[in-house]
């Protein structure tokens, strides 16, 4: 059985900074893996490597058994990706934008209308299809970005901070949507909001300084760190990701 996503020994260095250090994990259909970590932990860098935007220094990425480095474009057709901040072409209408994504994704002309309708329906975008993207509210923009990641019905979804900057209602809708999609897809979401783990994730991966600090079920996360039980996620997170302050190191030496 091939995994939807299999990452082995992934590393990336920017100059002298090791952004991602020997990260390995697997993901299957039905899973929602929450990618957690403090800012600058290497979450976005990892996602950029998984989607073929950044080449890794080391390690392999396989999507349904296909190597990303060897056949980048073939693998990219299996992935739906919403980059950090959900960048969109502001001067296009939602309809034009989704049409373009369909065409770029290679969706056959005769299937485009259906694919577009499907994606718009899942993300409840019908009302704004003819509006220019830059005039939309943040919630709609996020949904338009998500729709663009869904038009080709990919089995693997990678969403970089999908709920960042949304109001509580929009967050709730987005989470419900991710949950609904998870039945037939493998989903990877990054977040620094801990409640998200309980709300949508089946599994969690905690990253700090580019290294994996925890990989396991979302439920098991609470007992993962050496903190008094019953633990709050916040305490577990802090315990797993905290970096030794340099002052202490100096006094120890």
């Amino acid at each position: 059985m091939t995994d939807a996503l299999l990452v082995q020994h992934l590393s990336k260095r920017f100059g002298t900074r090791q952004a991602v250090d020997n990260v390995s994990f697997a993901l299957n259909i039905g899973d929602v893996l929450g990618f957690l970590g403090p800012n600058g932990a290497g979450k976005s860098t990892t996602m950029r490597m998984l989607t073929g935007f950044l080449p890794p220094d080391n390690g392999t990425i396989a999507v349904f058994g296909q190597d990303l480095q060897k056949s980048t474009q073939a693998v990219q057709t299996l992935i739906g990706y919403v980059p950090e901040g959900a960048p969109l072409y502001g001067d296009m209408t939602v309809y034009e934008f989704l049409q373009f994504i369909c065409a770029a994704r290679g969706v056959l002309k005769s299937r485009r209308a259906l694919a577009l309708y499907d994606a718009a329906e899942k993300t409840a975008l019908h009302e704004v299809l003819d509006q220019r993207i830059e005039t939309l509210s943040k919630g709609y923009k996020r949904r338009a970005a998500l729709a663009s990641a869904l038009v080709h019905n990919p089995p693997l979804l990678i969403l970089d901070e999908p709920t960042d900057g949304l109001d509580p209602n929009q967050k709730h809708t987005m989470r419900a949507l991710i949950k609904a999609l998870s039945a037939e897809k493998a989903i990877l979401i990054s977040t620094h909001i801990l409640e998200e783990v309980d709300a949508v994730c089946t599994r969690a991966l905690i990253l700090a300084e580019g290294r994996v600090r925890y990989l396991g079920t979302a439920a098991g996360l609470r007992t993962a760190a050496d903190v008094p039980q019953p633990a709050r996620l916040e305490d577990v997170f802090r315990s797993l990701t905290q970096i030794q302050p340099p002052m202490q190191q100096r006094s120890a030496a």
């Binding site: 059985m1 349904f64 369909c102 499907d118 037939e184």
Partner: peptide, 13 residues
Amino acid sequence: ALRPYRRPAPVLT
């Protein structure tokens, strides 16, 4: 969780 991968509906070229 180990269901085999089904081909996505939109036909891709």
